[in-house]
Amino acid sequence: MGIKHKTRARSLWVINYFTACGFIELLPWVGSGYDMERFGILAKGSPRHADVLIIAGYVTKKALPRIKRIYEQMPSPKYVLALGSCPMTGGMYWDSYSTIKRIDKYIPVDVWVTGCPPKPENIGHGLVMLMKKIENGFEGH
């Protein structure tokens, strides 16, 4: 609660690192269709400036150490949003030899957004849920 959490929830900066196909439904959010800057969400190039890591889709074995590295470089408090079925359970690639099936084994995830890829409305719903969680006093990781 309180002003600290309220302001935190209104300035979520996202790291500009979108792993896979889930990113395509973030385009309407970046573009003028939904415009995420209304929520105070900005895409940032450096992990040191970012608060939110969006895992947009499948994570391969090769990409996992890099994502962990980015996650570790982000300053606390940090939040993680997972888009799509792939990070959740493996999704489409549940029997692929090269992708990670459960991302929460490696990185804690705060909000899960389902869909393949999730509709932009659903992503917005997830972002609003994350904002609500922070407003209600969630301290992040």
Binding site: V111, W112, V113, T114, G115, E121, N122, H125, G126
Partner: peptide, 12 residues
């Protein structure tokens, strides 16, 4: 219906 986001994976 597409608004399906969850705090917890098992809710899905």
């Amino acid at each position: 219906e597409a608004m399906l986001s969850f705090y917890d994976k098992s809710l899905a």
